[in-house]
Write a protein that binds this DNA or RNA. Structure first.
Length: 998
RNA sequence: GCCCGAGUGGCGGAAUGGCAGACGCUAAGGACUUAAAAUCCUUUUUCGCGCAAGCGAAGUGCGGGUUCGACUCCCGCCUCGGGCACCA
C-alpha cells in the first residue's frame, strides 16, 4: 500500500538510530574543547510501574525531545538522558502479593518502559541510562548520604561544612565543647554523641503512624479516620526512632534561591508556602510563683525558675495577651504541675479531675490518641487549665497557662501568648473558656476614612486581625502596627527577655522507612548506643538477599531477618579520616574489632531521585559519583554570573507538578549540600522548570437519574458531584435524594444557553466535563493502542497540538486523527500515488518561498518559548499553502521535513531518505531564514475610523506615516465615514494600522 | 478561610496594547464512487435585513476605568481549577 504508513517506517528508523547511536552525547566534546555550547534538557524519570506508560508520560517527554532535537540542530552539545526511579512501595507490595522478588518485577517493568519509550522515537542517549536500584547507582546514593552525615550546618556562615572542621573548632576551643569540658578529655562515646547533635543526618524519636495490623508504618495519606486505608486496621501515633535530614537548616537558602529560578509562579509559591517563613519575635515569660501564699500545697521551686518562651508574629499585641497556651507535648507539662486546684476561682476549669496534674495528664493522653486527620476534621477548640501562671513582661499581669492541641509542638517553641482580641483562634478559645478579651489594636482612621465602617471595632464579637494602631498599650500607644512591632521588640531585646526571630513551617525530613525495597543505610550501631558510618570502600552496601522480605509484624524492619548481615564486627581506631571516625567491617576475631549492628531501616524512594540528573553526566564512573570536570561543564555556573554558583544547573527540566514540594525540594536541598561541600559547582540544580498539564479523559456527558431511573435535569442536581470508580453520584438539590449519573452519547447532547441539554429532550440538562483518567472509570488511553492505530509521530504531534504545554486538557481521539491526516497531506504534497517524489518538477513561486522563510522563523521562535501548539498550526498552514502551490522545489520539501523532524522524527527521516538525503536528517543543521524574505513589497493595512475597522488599504511596505495616512484618506470606503467631519487625530502604527479620529 | 492560576464559538484553542476566533476537531451540504470508506471543495460566533453577491449591529465571565485603540493594562465583583490549611 503506497502512502504514509507509520507502522512500516517507525520501527525501521528506531533501529537505525539505535544502531548508529545517533543521539549519543559526545563525551569527547564534554570537556576541554568547548567548541559547542552545552544544553542539558531533562525529564523527570518515571517510576516503572506495572501499568506501563500512560499518555501523560509522552506529553512532557515529547516536549523535551523537541527541544533536544532542535538544540542539536542549532549546534548545541545536548544532554538528553533517561532512567528509572525504581525503588519504592508499589514494587514491594506487588512483590509481596505475588510472591516474586521486587528485583524481578522491577526488571520486567523497566524493560517494558524502555521498549515503550523507544517506540515513541525519543532521542535519548540510552548509554547513559540509570536505575536507582542498581548497586552501581545506589553506591553513590549511599556515598552522598554519607556526605550529609559528615556535614554540619554553620549558622554563622549559613553553610554546610565538613564534620572534621567542627572537630577542629572544638579542639582549638573556638567552639565550646558541651559542659565546658575540653574536647580531648571527652571519651569516644561522648564525642560521637556531641557530633550527632550537629550532623545533617541524625536520629530522633518522632511520632509516626504505626499500624500493628499491617506491621508497618504508614504515611499520613494512607491513614483514614484512624484506620489503615488497606485492611481497615487501627493506626496509632507512636514515637519511633527514625533517621532525619536537617533540611530546616537550609530553609532560608531554599527560600532565597527561588528568586533566581525560572520556574512558574505557582510552583515557587507552593515551595514558599511549604517552607513558610514568618518574621516575628521570641518572648520569654516568667512562670509565676505558684501557688499563691494563701494556698496550702507545697511549692515547686524548680518550676518557678523556668521561663516559658513563645514565638509571635505580632509582638505589638503583647499588651493584649490575656492567657497562654502550650502544646500537649510541651516539656513544661511533663512534671511539677500542682496537685490541687487553686481555691475558688478555678471552678469553671476543673473538668472533674482532682488536680491540674491529673487534668493535664488526661488531656495529653486524649490529644495523643487523635490522628492528624481527626485534628484536621474537628477544629473545635479543646484544652485544660494547667494550674500555673505566667507573668506578662509588659504589664506584670498574672495570666493562666492552658494546654491545648491547637498549639503545635513542632512549630515555633510549642507555646504561644494568646491575644484573643486580635487572633481568630485565640478568640474562639477565649470565648469558649470565658477568658478576658481586650483590644490593643485599633483601626487606623487616617487613610481612606470613608472605607472604614461606622461601627467601631468590637473585639469581643470577633478578632480584629488587621494592622492598625496600638491602643490600650501604654508606651507604644498610637503607633502603627509596623512601628509598634519594632519598638516593642527593641525593648524586649534591651531587657534581655526577647529577640527578633524568623520561623519556618518546614520540618526536618523523615528519611527512614521500615521497608525492604530501598537503599540500606551505610551505618552501624555500636554497643554504647552510638552510630558510626562505614568507610567509603564498604560501598555499595548491598541489600541482603532475602527470601522473605515481608514486614515482620513488629516494629522491626524486614532487614532484621537477615541475621548474618545485621551482626558484624568493625574496626574503628585505625579508620579515622580528618578526625572523622569511620567503621570498617572485618571478620570476627580480628584484633581490635568490636561488635556492631547494621542499621535496619532503608531510605525512602526520594533518595535516588535527589541526584540522578548528576549521575547521567558520567553514569559509568565507578571512581566518583561524577567527574568534577564533567560536572562543571554541564551544571556549572556560566562565567560572569552573579554570586557563587548562580545561574548554573539543568537548562530545562520538564515534569509533573505532583513533585512540587517533594522531589523538587529535596533535590534542591541535596544539591545545596553538594555545593557547600564543593562537589557541585552550581547552587541550584534546575535553572528552568516547566510543569506539563495533566491530560484528562475524553469529555463525557452525564445524565443524572433517581434510583427509579427517572432523569433529573441538571439544575436540580447538587453541584458536588462525587466519583467513586466508574460511578458518578450526586444528590437532589431539594430532596437530598441520591442520584446516579449515566453516560450520554456525546452526539445526543447539544449546547443550549449556558448548558448542555439532550437533543431528544431539550428540557433535560446534562452535566458535561472531563475526568481524570483512571482504570476504574475506564477512560484510560493506552499509548500503545494509539501508536498501533496512528503511529508514534501522530501521538507526539497530537499531544503537542492539544494546547499549551502547562495546561490541563482533555484527550480527544478525533484530534489524533486530525494530526494523522495532516501528516498524510504533507506526504501527498511531496509524493505521488506511487510514492515517487513529485517535487522539483518546475520552478517554485515566490509566495511559497517567502512562506517557507516565515515558517522557519516562526517555528524557531515558537520552539524557544515552548509554544508547540502554535508551531504545529503554522506547519499546517504552510502545508495548506503547498497543496495549492503549482510546484514545489526539492529544497523546500527537504527544509519542511527538517522543521518537522523534532515533532515527527520518523516521518521526517523517511521523507528525507526518499528524496535522496543520506544519513539521518537529525544530523542536518537547522535551516536559516533570510530576513529580507520576511518583508513583502506591499502590505495590507487596516484602516479604522474612531477605532472601528472600516477599510483596508495596500501600501508599499516602506511607506511612511504621511503616505499611509494620505492613502487612507483617499480610500473611498473611509471617505464615506469622514464626509463633512473634521479630523481630530491621525495615527499610523507602522505596518499595523491606521486610525482616524473625528 | 488563606495563597496562586484561569475564564474567548458546539469543542481544544489562536491573537505578548493594533484586523478577535489562526490551526485542528465536530456538524451540515456538495464532488468522486454502483455503493461505502478514504480523499477533495464549501459553510460553521450570534442577531437582524436580503432571492442573492452582500449589508448592518453586537460580541472575549460581570461592572467600572486608562487609551486614538483593550481578550491583553488598572480597580471592584462572580465562577471554575490547583495548592495550603489551627504554622501563632
Amino acid at each position: 500500500m503506497p502512502g504514509y504508513n507509520p507502522s512500516q517506517i517507525e520501527k525501521k528508523w528506531q533501529r537505525f538510530w539505535a544502531d548508529q547511536k545517533s543521539f549519543a552525547t559526545d563525551a569527547a566534546d564534554t570537556w576541554g574543547g568547548g567548541a559547542r555550547p552545552k544544553y542539558y534538557v531533562l525529564d523527570m524519570f518515571p517510576y516503572p510501574s506495572g501499568q506501563g506508560l500512560h499518555v501523560g508520560h509522552p506529553e512532557g517527554y515529547t516536549a523535551t525531545d523537541i527541544i533536544a532535537r532542535y538544540k542539536r540542530a542549532k549546534g548545541f552539545n545536548v544532554m538528553h538522558p533517561m532512567g528509572w526511579d525504581a525503588f519504592g512501595l508499589p514494587a514491594e507490595q506487588y512483590a509481596i502479593k505475588n510472591n516474586v522478588h521486587p528485583r524481578e518485577t522491577t526488571a520486567n517493568n523497566v524493560n517494558r518502559f524502555r521498549t515503550q519509550l523507544q517506540s515513541l522515537g525519543f532521542s535519548y542517549d540510552w548509554d547513559r541510562e540509570v536505575d536507582t536500584t542498581d548497586p552501581h547507582y545506589y553506591k553513590w546514593t549511599q556515598w552522598i548520604f554519607l556526605k550529609l552525615y559528615r556535614t554540619w550546618f554553620d549558622e554563622k556562615l549559613q553553610k554546610g561544612r565538613p564534620i572534621h572542621e567542627l572537630i577542629e573548632e572544638f579542639k582549638s576551643g573556638k567552639r565550646a565543647a558541651p559542659g565546658g569540658r575540653e574536647w580531648d578529655s571527652l571519651i569516644a562515646t561522648e564525642r560521637r554523641k556531641v557530633l550527632a547533635e550537629y550532623r545533617l543526618a541524625y536520629e530522633a524519636e518522632v511520632p509516626v503512624n504505626w499500624c500493628p495490623g499491617l506491621g508497618t508504618v504508614l504515611a499520613n495519606e494512607e491513614v483514614i479516620d484512624g484506620k489503615s486505608e488497606v485492611g481497615g486496621f487501627p493506626v496509632e501515633r507512636r514515637p519511633m526512632r527514625q533517621w532525619m535530614l536537617r533540611i530546616t537548616a537550609y530553609a532560608k537558602r531554599l527560600l532565597d534561591g527561588l528568586g533566581q529560578l525560572d520556574w512558574s509562579d505557582s510552583l515557587k509559591e507552593m515551595q514558599r508556602n511549604w517552607i513558610g517563613e514568618s518574621e516575628g519575635a521570641e518572648v520569654e515569660f516568667e512562670v509565676s510563683s505558684f501557688p499563691p501564699p494563701e494556698f496550702q500545697v507545697s511549692r515547686n521551686p524548680e518550676l518557678e525558675t523556668r521561663n516559658l518562651t513563645v514565638f509571635t508574629t505580632r509582638p505589638d499585641t503583647l499588651f493584649g495577651a490575656t492567657y497562654m497556651v502550650v502544646a500537649p507535648e510541651h516539656p513544661l507539662m511533663h512534671s511539677g504541675l500542682p496537685e490541687a486546684w487553686e481555691a475558688g476561682i478555678m471552678e469553671k476549669w476543673k473538668y472533674g479531675k482532682a488536680s491540674p496534674r491529673e487534668a493535664v495528664a488526661a488531656y495529653r493522653q486524649w490529644a495523643a490518641s487523635r490522628s492528624d486527620r481527626q485534628r484536621q476534621e474537628d477544629t473545635q477548640k479543646t484544652g485544660v487549665f494547667s494550674g500555673i501562671y505566667a507573668i506578662n513582661p509588659v504589664n506584670q499581669k498574672r495570666i493562666p497557662i492552658f494546654v491545648s492541641d491547637y498549639v503545635l509542638m513542632g512549630y515555633g517553641t510549642g507555646a504561644i501568648m494568646a491575644v484573643p482580641g486580635h487572633d481568630e483562634r485565640d478568640h474562639e478559645f477565649a470565648t469558649k473558656f470565658k477568658l478576658p478579651i481586650v483590644q490593643v489594636v485599633g483601626e487606623k482612621l487616617g487613610e481612606k476614612p470613608e472605607a472604614r465602617s461606622q461601627k467601631p471595632v468590637d473585639v469581643r464579637q470577633a478578632a480584629f486581625v488587621e494592622d492598625g494602631v496600638a491602643v490600650n498599650s501604654a508606651w507604644i500607644e498610637g503607633l502603627p502596627t509596623a512601628e509598634a512591632k519594632k519598638k516593642i521588640t527593641g525593648m524586649l531585646e534591651e531587657r534581655g527577655i526577647g529577640k527578633r526571630m524568623v520561623n519556618y513551617k518546614i520540618r526536618d525530613w523523615l528519611f527512614s522507612r521500615q521497608r525492604y525495597w530501598g537503599e540500606p543505610f551505610p551505618l552501624v550501631h555500636l554497643a554504647d548506643g552510638t552510630t558510626v558510618s562505614l568507610v567509603d570502600s564498604e560501598l555499595p552496601l548491598k541489600l541482603p538477599e532475602l527470601e522473605d522480605f515481608k514486614p515482620t509484624g513488629t516494629i522491626e524492619p524486614p532487614l532484621s531477618k537477615a541475621k548474618d548481615w545485621v551482626n558484624v564486627h568493625v574496626l574503628l581506631e585505625r579508620v579515622v579520616e580528618n578526625g572523622e571516625e569511620m567503621a570498617r567491617v572485618v571478620p570476627a576475631g580480628t584484633s581490635g574489632a568490636v561488635p556492631a549492628r547494621r542499621e535496619l531501616n532503608t531510605m525512602p524512594q526520594w533518595a535516588g531521585s535527589c541526584w540522578y540528573y548528576i549521575r547521567y553526566l558520567d553514569s559509568k564512573n565507578d571512581k566518583a559519583f561524577v567527574d568534577p570536570a564533567i560536572e562543571k561543564y554541564w551544571l556549572g555556573a556560566p562565567h560572569g554570573n552573579a554570586g557563587p554558583g548562580g545561574g548554573g544547573g539543568v537548562d530545562l527540566y520538564i515534569g509533573g507538578v505532583e513533585h512540587a514540594v517533594l522531589h523538587l525540594l529535596y533535590s534542591r536541598f541535596w544539591h545545596k549540600v553538594l555545593f557547600d561541600r564543593e562537589l557541585a559547582t552550581s547552587n541550584e540544580p534546575f535553572k528552568r522548570l516547566v510543569n506539563q498539564g495533566l491530560i484528562l479523559g475524553e469529555a463525557e456527558f452525564t445524565l443524572f437519574k433517581t434510583r427509579e431511573h427517572k432523569p433529573i435535569s441538571y439544575e436540580m442536581v447538587d453541584p458536588n458531584v462525587t466519583v467513586d470508580g466508574s460511578l458518578i453520584m450526586s444528590k437532589h438539590k431539594e430532596t437530598g435524594e441520591d442520584l446516579i449519573g449515566e453516560r450520554v452519547d456525546p452526539a445526543d447532547a447539544e449546547k443550549k444557553g449556558d448548558s448542555f441539554v439532550l437533543k431528544s429532550n431539550p428540557s433535560i440538562r446534562v452535566d458535561a466535563r472531563s475526568f481524570k483518567m483512571s482504570k476504574s472509570r475506564g477512560n484510560v488511553v493506552n499509548p500503545d493502542d494509539v501508536i498501533k492505530e496512528y503511529g508514534a509521530d501522530s501521538l507526539r504531534m497530537f499531544e503537542m497540538f492539544m494546547g499549551p504545554l502547562e495546561q490541563v486538557k482533555p484527550w480527544s481521539t478525533a484530534g489524533v486523527e486530525g494530526v494523522y491526516r495532516f501528516l498524510q497531506r504533507v506526504w501527498r504534497n511531496i509524493f505521488d500515488e506511487n510514492d515517487n517524489a513529485k517535487v522539483g518538477g518546475g520552478g517554485q513561486d515566490e509566495a511559497t518561498t517567502r512562506a517557507l522563510h516565515r515558517l522557519i522563523k516562526k517555528i524557531g521562535d515558537d520552539i524557544e518559548r515552548l509554544s508547540f501548539n502554535t508551531a504545529i498550526a503554522a506547519m499546517m498552514e504552510f502545508n495548506n499553502l503547498l497543496a495549492k502551490a503549482p510546484s514545489i522545489s526539492v529544497e523546500t520539501a527537504m527544509t519542511f521535513a527538517r522543521i518537522l523532524e523534532p515533532f515527527a522524527p520518523h516521518f521526517a527521516e523517511e521523507v528525507h531518505a526518499k528524496l535522496g538525503g543520506s544519513g539521518s536528517i537529525s544530523k542536518q543543521s537547522w535551516p536559516t531564514f533570510d530576513p529580507a524574505m520576511l518583508i513583502d513589497a506591499t502590505i495590507e493595512v487596516p484602516v479604522q475610523v474612531n477605532g472601528k475597522l472600516r477599510s483596508r488599504i495596500t501600501l508599499p511596505s516602506n511607506a511612511d506615516e504621511q503616505a499611509a495616512i494620505a492613502a487612507a484618506l483617499a480610500d473611498p470606503e473611509v471617505q464615506k465615514y469622514l464626509a463633512g467631519k473634521e479630523l481630530k487625530k491621525k495615527i499610523y502604527v507602522r505596518g499595523r494600522m491606521v486610525n482616524l479620529v473625528i
